[in-house]
Computed example of a mutant assay.
Amino acid sequence: MAMEKNKVKFGLNKVHYAKITSYDEEGVPTFATPVRIPGAVSLSIDAEGEASNFYADDGVYYVINNNSGYTGDLEIALVPLEFATDILGEKLDEKGVLTETNTAEVSQFALLFEFTGDKRKIRHVLYCCSASRPATEGQTTEDSKEVKTETISIKASALPNGLVKAKTCESTDASTYDGWYKNVYTPAAGTASKTTVKA
């Protein structure tokens, strides 16, 4: 049974990341199980790439679509320890201290999230993301307390098979919708190359 159609969307919830643990010889990634990022405040991503025209016969003969993915910012309450170690390459030492070095290797990951709709939540996945280190800031407490959030810059690019992004809609089947945050969804063969998912 198809979902009811949304007329509007609002709100951000259930942000997850799923680390890309490896690629096979054909460039197909293996994803770890998605992990929740609590305290999501906002997500703003802009499409990258522009269409360009090829002219022939005194007119536009062909339109070339350059999809360069998305860039933007994810604002959260605090960067979780798991994200810092899994994705940003920081190390937790034997004394429980989180350390950052200039040789830390940042890992790629899928970013999953949903926007609330008036009828049904729209669930999204960006398949190949990289993240920057958040800035460190704070200020003295005055008469009233102001919560300071942390912002991570996100760059989402295409997988080797060309897959950039997917989202649910009113025709999404129930099992796919309900399992969105259990494993990274990948389209059937023919839409894009099949991606192995680590349970």
Rank of each mutant, 00 (worst) to 15 (best):
A2W: 06
M3C: 09
N6H: 07
H16I: 05
Y17P: 02
A18P: 09
I20H: 09
T21A: 07
S22Q: 06
D24F: 09
A32P: 01
T33P: 06
V35K: 10
R36A: 13
P38A: 09
G39I: 13
L43K: 04
S44P: 03
I45T: 13
D46E: 14
E48P: 00
G49S: 11
E50L: 09
A51D: 10
S52Y: 01
N53L: 06
Y55G: 05
A56I: 03
D57F: 10
V60L: 01
Y61C: 09
V63C: 12
I64D: 14
N67D: 09
D73E: 10
L74C: 10
E75G: 08
I76T: 15
L78A: 15
E82D: 15
T85S: 04
D86Q: 03
D86E: 07
K91I: 13
L92A: 01
L98V: 10
T101K: 09
T101M: 04
N102Q: 07
E105T: 14
V106R: 00
E114Y: 09
E114S: 15
E114Q: 15
F115C: 05
F115T: 12
T116Q: 05
T116M: 05
G117T: 13
G117M: 08
R120P: 03
I122E: 10
H124E: 09
V125A: 11
V125S: 10
S130V: 10
P134V: 10
A135C: 02
G138P: 00
Q139A: 12
Q139W: 04
Q139C: 05
E142W: 05
D143W: 11
D143H: 12
S144H: 14
K145H: 11
K145A: 13
E146M: 12
V147L: 11
E150S: 15
S153A: 11
K155R: 14
A156Y: 06
L159S: 06
L159W: 07
L159F: 08
A166H: 01
A166P: 00
T168A: 14
E170I: 05
S171N: 02
A174H: 03
S175K: 02
Y177K: 03
Y177D: 04
D178R: 12
G179S: 08
W180K: 05
Y181S: 05
V184A: 04
Y185K: 05
A189R: 01
A189V: 12
K194Q: 09
T196V: 15
K198T: 14
A199P: 01
